[in-house]
């Protein structure tokens, strides 16, 4: 425990923590842990975050933490928590000073991580689209929020209630157009 604590305040520490609790550092549970601890910076936990976080989780040993991690998912998935978690995930990935957007490659991984289990087909097609288009190199918070709203509100895959004249982000307009084009080709 002590060894881990010493190393915790660096990325190496996080890695050590991961192997100790038997979770890959790219696992969504690590992100959830960060959310629970309200960690500000990716790859780091501050001492305060660690202490307050562990208290909130009511764990004091690696064994307990390991157990707690598995039911943390349930907590996050509760509707009242999930949106907060979703927005947190974006902010957590902003590593640079004044950074407002995240590159496409990271966004695709992040989407897969946080929305993959709930909205698999949406995430798959959207990330596919993001990878082939070349208009957008980054995604900002507004577009990130928009996509979550899209997943919740738009019937999929028929996209019947999608209306481009509404305030959807342009990237979603383009994505929907691409989807429809694809469906038309498939039908033909």
């Amino acid at each position: 425990m002590l060894v881990i604590l010493v190393l915790l305040y660096s990325p190496e520490g996080i890695e050590a923590l991961c192997s100790a609790v038997g979770v890959d550092h790219t696992d969504v549970r690590m992100l959830m842990l960060a959310w629970k601890m309200n960690a500000e910076k990716q790859g780091y936990f501050t001492q305060d975050e660690w202490h307050i976080g562990l208290k909130a989780l009511r764990v004091d040993t690696i064994g307990k933490l390991k157990k707690r991690l598995s039911n943390l998912k349930e907590e996050v998935m509760k509707p009242e928590n999930f949106e907060n978690f979703y927005l947190y995930a974006f902010r957590y990935c902003l590593t640079e000073e004044k950074q407002k957007s995240i590159d496409i490659e990271s966004i695709c991984i992040l989407l897969d991580l946080v929305l993959g289990s709930q909205f698999r087909p949406q995430v798959d097609t959207f990330t596919e689209y993001l990878k082939i288009q070349n208009e957008y190199k980054v995604i900002n918070m507004d577009q990130w929020t928009n996509f979550f709203r899209f997943c919740k509100e738009i019937s999929f895959p028929d996209l019947e209630n999608y209306d481009t004249t509404e305030a959807w982000s342009l990237v979603l307009d383009n994505y929907v157009e691409w989807m429809k084009e694809k469906a038309k080709l498939a039908a033909a």
Binding site: K100, S101, N140, D142, Q143, T164, T165, A167, S169, D173
Partner: peptide, 13 residues
């Protein structure tokens, strides 16, 4: 309209 959206989004940004 798409161009307008783009500008609105830029102003949000």
């Amino acid at each position: 309209p798409a161009d307008l959206k783009k500008r609105i989004e830029s102003l949000i940004d």
